Simulated assay, not measured.
Amino acid sequence: MDATYTIVIADDHPLFRNALFQSVHMAISGANLLEADSLNSLLDILRKQDDVDLILLDLKMPGANGMSGLMQLRSEFPDIAVVVISASEEPSVVSQVKSHGAFGFIPKSSDMRSLISALNQVLNGDQFFPEGLAKQAERYSDITDKLASLTPQQYKVLAMLADGLLNKQIAYELDVSVATIKAHMTAIFRKLGVTNRTQAVILLQQSEIES
């Protein structure tokens, strides 16, 4: 495919990022390829570049707690297609990725031919989700829908809660008041249909993303 696209490869593992860079370069002739190794560096690029066509996003990067990075991208840059490239191939993860507005999901285990085919499909304007995983993902729609109802900040709070942080510690990390965190907790419990921290964490763990 010969076209001029601007694509950002966002992955914190240098070896995989370099391999993906080479693959995309082979797949898409003349593409302008940019790299980011954290959510902050990705956001910096997007705020300076107004012609990005596609983001290839790793879910496990510094600054991104699970789906919160994808959520922030879809919120701030809704017109840019995001394709998640992840080692987490669980149907629950694929289900979440899809519900949060990703344009596609490519497993890191994909071979070169599959990767190139998927990229070309996406750049032609068609979503790409592996057929087998997509069908299995439908089983997780209830949990997925609940988690998708959270705002990016609420998702961050929930992820930190799952890491064992106290309200005071979460407030410090996010630079907000403890009262704000308590308000987030109330909203999270309501949206997830749970009554306490343990239930909320269990719900998140049912869709856990592996590294």
Rank of each mutant, 00 (worst) to 15 (best):
M1E: 12
T4W: 13
T4G: 14
T4I: 12
I7N: 04
V8K: 06
I9V: 15
D12Y: 11
N18D: 11
N18P: 06
L20N: 03
F21W: 11
V24I: 15
G30D: 08
L33V: 00
E35S: 05
E35Q: 14
N40C: 04
I45N: 12
Q49I: 08
D51T: 01
V52T: 06
V52K: 00
V52W: 01
L56H: 00
K60T: 11
A64M: 05
A64E: 03
G66V: 02
G69Y: 05
L70E: 01
L73K: 10
S75V: 12
S75R: 10
D79P: 04
I80D: 03
V82Q: 01
I85A: 03
E89L: 06
E90S: 09
E90K: 07
V94T: 02
S95F: 06
S95P: 02
S95L: 09
K98S: 02
S99F: 04
S99M: 10
S99R: 15
G101H: 11
F103I: 05
F105W: 02
I106V: 11
P107I: 07
P107E: 11
P107G: 01
K108G: 02
S109Q: 08
S110K: 07
Q121L: 08
G125R: 05
E138F: 15
D145F: 13
K146P: 14
L147G: 05
L147E: 07
L147W: 12
Y155N: 14
Y155V: 04
L158E: 04
A162M: 12
I170P: 00
Y172L: 10
L174M: 05
D175W: 06
V178K: 02
I181G: 01
I181W: 05
K182Y: 13
A183Y: 10
M185Y: 06
T186W: 15
A187P: 11
I188F: 15
F189P: 08
G193T: 07
T195P: 00
N196K: 06
N196P: 04
R197F: 05
A200V: 03
V201A: 14
I202F: 13
E210N: 09
